[in-house]
Design a protein around this nucleic acid. Structure first.
Length: 334
DNA sequence: AATAGCGGCAACCGCTGTAAT
DNA sequence: CATTACAGCGGTTGCCGCTAT
């Protein structure tokens, strides 16, 4: 036998909270606290509510110092930046915005902020595009063109089903679908090709490690389960996935350093993008074919070359023990 | 004035990892 | 160790009020 049931599901009230219920809950918690036990709380407080419902009401509405109303530009920026890096981890994002609840931020993102960003895009299929290396570093292959971040204006036809976003301050540009927006480099928002594209049905390769992709460590030799390129995370998909160990040593990168490679050939854009998480100085990212076509063997080799020989040297010389940071990574590709 | 459509938001649902029995 | 509930989280729903027609 396990625990006893928490409440009589048939005999609890649902729906909006009345002012009386709010007062009862608030008074009780202010006097006695939650005691770490939400399930037992409603009965003690004289409420015909599920403990779960009480918890939500308290956290999202009744607890002290809750901030409601307009989000500031600074808050917008924080939300966008965090979303770009960690995705929809609302509770973590809320932790960086005192007084804001995860529910508030989630609602704000879904109803306003996302649209605000989308509104910056201008549809076009007439724009031009060169394969570019967008990075503060030299290109690592002659087949990948070097271009400074701000001067990498498109010059050949961009396939219709692609977005290209720019922004500034070493933030990643983003290739997605359908639109190109040439003014996006004025925007401070950081985009996340990793998260966004993993939900699409693109062919892709992931390397390095982070929460969204694989997590590989030379210290314990383990790899956590990786995410695949679409929602069909079934065993059939995994059977087609190839895995290859590779050295990611010497990929020293500064915090927030981001890079992107794009490789254009016929109607296919292959892009490689990556970032470094705050904790682990390693490169990670995704190589994908935005048009959904097969990844070209050549670009795959380019990436291997890039990662294994890059010596990015993005960390200054007095950085601590570089050898310590050498890692073995895994490449996954179809 | 009536009402259909839409957006915002509070609350619920369902999943996952953890803890209690 | 197995079973079951709890706590927390993100996704989704549905109500309510505003606006356009």
């Amino acid at each position: 036998m396990g625990r006893a049931p928490c409440c009589d599901k048939a005999n609890v009230k649902k729906g909006p909270w009345s002012p009386e219920e709010d007062a009862k809950l608030k008074d009780f918690i202010e006097k006695f606290g939650t005691g770490g036990n939400w399930i037992g709380l409603p009965q003690k407080a004289g409420l015909k509510r599920c403990g779960k419902s009480c918890r939500l009401r308290w956290l999202n509405y009744l607890r002290p110092n809750i901030k409601h109303g307009e989000f500031t530009d600074e808050e917008d920026k924080i939300i966008c930046t965090l979303y770009s890096n960690i995705g929809s981890r609302w509770s973590i994002i809320a932790g960086q915005l005192p007084g804001r609840t995860d529910n508030d931020i989630k609602n704000y993102w879904n109803t306003k902020l996302k649209k605000k960003l989308m509104g910056l895009m201008v549809p076009s299929n007439q724009n031009k595009f060169y394969p570019t290396l967008i990075s503060s570093h030299q290109p690592l292959s002659s087949n990948l063109y070097n271009s400074s971040f701000y001067s990498s204006q498109p010059t050949t036809n961009i396939p219709q089903n692609n977005y290209l976003y720019y922004n500034n301050n070493n933030s990643l540009p983003l290739i997605s679908t359908n639109y190109y927006h040439q003014d996006f480099h004025h925007c401070n928002y950081i985009n996340n090709p990793l998260k966004d594209h993993m939900t699409n049905n693109h062919n892709m390769l992931m390397f390095g490690g982070n929460d969204q992709a694989s997590t590989c460590s030379s210290s314990d030799g383990s790899c956590s389960q990786i995410s695949y390129g679409n929602n069909n995370n079934n065993n059939n998909n995994k059977q087609h996935l190839k895995q290859e160990e590779m050295v990611v040593g010497n990929c020293f990168v500064q915090e927030n350093q981001k890079f992107m490679l794009q490789h254009y050939n016929n109607d296919i854009i292959n892009s490689l993008s990556g970032f470094v998480d705050d904790q682990k100085p390693r490169i990670s990212g995704i190589l994908e074919s935005c048009s959904g076509a097969e990844l070209e063997y050549g670009i795959l080799e380019e990436v291997k070359q890039l990662i294994s020989t890059s010596n990015c040297n993005l960390v200054n010389d007095d950085d601590e023990d570089k050898e310590k940071e050498k890692e073995k990574g895994m490449m996954y590709y179809y």
